[in-house]
Design a protein around this nucleic acid. Structure first.
Lengths: 111, 111
DNA sequence: CCATTAGTACGAGGATCTTCGTAGTACGAC
DNA sequence: GTCGTACTACGAAGATCCTCGTACTAATGG
């Protein structure tokens, strides 16, 4: 039995219909994760975890990316040794129109 | 010495400039508080705590209203034995344009 | 094969949060 | 003054969260 249950390294994502507002708001209600979201919004392309500098260790970074993914805020997949992330802007806008944009806009101003 | 430190029952509110996005999002990231916010948004006038039915005890209700007030989401003041609450819609819109509206709109749909 | 790079799983410490019950205060009506 | 209503302060229990260190895997480049 391997250390990993997930040999092909696929990552579980909630369906768009499964995304809950509570969880999205909770995911966004953390300064580190807000910074991640802002950086992803700034980047046009998908981005490797390691390319975003955060004031926490790598373990903690993994944790925050997972919270964002499991809430449905970002989509992730492996590309070689890197793990690429991007916002689920379209999915979120379908469910909660304008929400992500206003949070990002607010985060830019407020710290 | 009285049980209360605050004999005239004034309630502390953050200045508009002191409102932090983190705290607002955290305050909104709870089903009970989201329901409060939606009910306040629906009501045109200010509303007594007791007029909003919640699936928690009165102690817990007090707690949730306080979280919302301290985050800057609602404004509260006493009127007789009742405690009136209303959204700080204008203040929030100044700081974070569109945010409250999109959250409320999203909450109406999503549960 | 070996070293390096990028990320993870697991466990633990400490902080914070949600919920409640109990006992209490403030106000208004009688 | 007495009673009822509305709300609060103060714990405390239990859950969840953020953070980290350690030990690990998986892919890439010599």
């Amino acid at each position: 039995m391997s250390y990993h249950r997930n040999m092909d390294r696929t990552l579980p994502h909630p369906e768009t219909s499964e995304i809950r507002l509570d969880q999205v708001l909770h995911a966004l209600a953390d300064p580190v994760r807000l910074q991640i979201v802002c950086d992803l919004a700034k980047a046009s392309e998908e981005v490797a975890c390691s390319s975003i500098e955060l004031p926490v260790t790598k373990s903690t970074t993994t944790h925050h990316f997972r919270v964002l993914r499991e809430a449905g805020v970002i989509r992730q997949h492996y590309k070689g040794t890197a793990k690429m992330s991007c916002l689920r802007g379209h999915d979120l806008d379908e469910l909660f129109p304008g929400l992500l944009a206003s949070v990002i806009e607010a985060a830019r101003k407020n710290s």
